[in-house]
């Protein structure tokens, strides 16, 4: 069953690749799709080890050691950044999401609010919709990595709560993000 799902996801990603990403529904490609050979036979073999499952020789569970504030301040959950007016997960952020998924697997009681943010070069309401897409894209990706969807909430702040305040790309790139806040441990 897992094999079929992975194949479907790969075929879907390939079929969509030539279209504009912003229009696509937020179906995450499987993490190794870019690196995986196109062959239908080879792909599942490459994919299978990537699905995150709780590891038996877990290091100390961070959630048992630190307070909520400390967990968030220590940055265990990495943000994901987006291109302008886009909500697809870029390949360079797959590692970050896999790390996040591993953290969540190690700390099964942790619950997360996933915030979608946008830069100022969009209108207010449109950006709220775009931020919703970004948060959902990140959530779908984590769910595809095996995280229980019930532990993940999403909210969009559009351009209402920017991380950086200047008016050039150095700030805009910081503000186009899915940001993860641990809300329960």
């Amino acid at each position: 069953m897992k094999r079929i799902l992975v194949l479907l996801a790969i075929v879907g990603a390939a079929a969509c690749a030539h279209k504009k990403a912003a229009q696509e529904p937020v179906v995450p490609p499987p993490p190794p799709a870019a690196e995986a050979p196109a062959s239908e036979e080879a792909a599942p073999v490459e994919v299978e080890p990537q699905v995150v499952t709780p590891v038996t020789d877990t290091p100390a569970q961070e959630a048992l050691t630190y307070s909520l504030e400390e967990l968030n301040a220590k940055g265990y959950l990495k943000p994901v950044f987006f291109d302008y007016d886009q909500s697809d997960i870029k390949s360079e952020f797959r590692d970050a999401l896999e790390q996040n998924a591993r953290f969540l697997a190690r700390n099964p009681s942790v619950r997360v609010m996933m915030e979608g943010h946008c830069d100022e070069r969009g209108t207010r309401e449109y950006n709220i919709a775009l931020g919703t897409r970004r948060a959902e894209a990140a959530k779908s990706y984590l769910v595809a990595l095996g995280v229980d969807a019930g532990r993940l909430q999403t909210i969009s702040y559009g351009k209402e709560k920017p991380f950086a305040d200047c008016h050039d790309e150095s700030c805009w790139s910081q503000n186009r993000r899915a940001h993860f806040v641990i809300i329960a441990k």
Partner: peptide, 10 residues
Amino acid sequence: FAGAGADGNT
């Protein structure tokens, strides 16, 4: 109004 359901599409 503009509304989004669980799929995140507005």
